[in-house]
């Protein structure tokens, strides 16, 4: 009977799909969903004394965080850092990504590998690298003073400047990868067509190449933004304890103050912030891809 054989075939396929999905879903469940639920539950407990918590279902930690002026400052600071690093990293990565997406050179594979090679080292190592380069007697300062451009060394570490420089570099491989993946609609034929219709290089870029590359730019931007806002190591090391972002604040609350409900509440709020940006991203993406 054809119908029954088809449905049993569909059943087999469903079973196969379930079997293939199970390991991944299990891993995600154990390593992501369970801790997340635990985190959310923790945020509802109440801190009664130093490092002492009382099981409860209360929003007191949230009230604490949201009424704390310093927390708002940190949040604002984090957002601002995220936007700045995103803009800079995407701007610097864009030409590289566009070139890699379109070149037909035989060296393309090698250049791709070079562009994403920094991902092979941990961001701890790369942050220390930047610490050395940007320190008061590092290569950057000594080069500038030897050239007579500066008299006093520039303060490039232990402040936001250093954090931004290091984060931009660390985020570039992600931005490049995400953008290349999103440049599918940019095509040589379209640019040739625009050229034959009278568009010079600049107008061709403004009217054709750039609008068509926007989905890639958005994806790259979301990637960099999320990673930057949740970055902990680089702001911590490069900021020398003087740069406060939500991630460092969570760490301090959890390990120094030992106020776990408050740390959890902060983490949940950060998660909500990501949610907002994800929705925003999807709206924008539909707008640039839609027509």
């Amino acid at each position: 009977m054809p119908t029954s054989s088809r449905s049993s075939e569909g059943g087999t396929r469903r079973a196969a799909a379930a079997a293939l999905l199970t390991p991944g879903l299990l891993a995600l469940g154990v390593s992501f969903v369970v801790p997340l639920v635990w985190l959310a539950r923790m945020s509802l407990n109440r801190t009664v004394g130093p490092a002492e918590l009382q099981p409860d279902v209360s929003l007191s930690s949230y009230v604490d965080v949201l009424t704390d002026g310093f927390m708002w400052e940190v949040a604002w600071h984090t957002l601002w850092l995220g936007v700045l690093v995103t803009v800079l990293a995407v701007a610097v990565s864009y030409p590289i990504a566009l070139f890699l997406a379109r070149t037909r050179s035989r060296l393309r594979g090698l250049l791709m590998a070079l562009a994403i090679a920094p991902l092979l080292t941990s961001s701890v190592v790369r942050t220390f690298g930047w610490l050395i380069l940007l320190s008061d007697d590092g290569i950057v300062n000594s080069a500038l003073s030897t050239l007579g451009i500066i008299g006093e060394p520039l303060t490039l570490t232990n402040n936001v400047t250093g954090v931004v420089i290091a984060l931009v570099e660390i985020m570039m491989p992600y931005a490049i990868l995400a953008m290349i993946a999103g440049f599918g609609r940019v095509s040589k034929d379209l640019e040739d067509a625009a050229g034959s219709l009278g568009a010079g290089r600049l107008r061709c870029f403004v009217r054709i190449t750039f609008p068509l590359s926007l989905p890639g730019v958005l994806t790259g931007a979301l990637m960099v933004f999320v990673l930057t806002v949740s970055a902990f190591i680089t702001p911590r090391l490069m900021g020398g304890g003087r740069v406060f972002v939500i991630a460092t604040e969570i760490y301090d609350q959890a390990t120094t103050t030992l106020d776990w409900p408050r740390a959890s509440a902060l983490a949940v709020l950060l998660l909500l912030l990501f949610g907002v940006f994800l929705v925003l991203y999807q709206r924008l993406f539909r707008m640039v891809e839609g027509r």
Partner: peptide, 28 residues
């Protein structure tokens, strides 16, 4: 250069600009 040649070009792939309407394509 190509943009000063004043030649009409039609491609196998059509090469219509996907982010513009039909009218905007012709208007370009």
């Amino acid at each position: 250069p190509v943009h000063k040649r004043d030649m009409g070009l039609v491609f196998q792939s059509y090469a219509l600009f996907p982010h513009m309407s039909v009218g905007e394509n012709v208007d370009f």
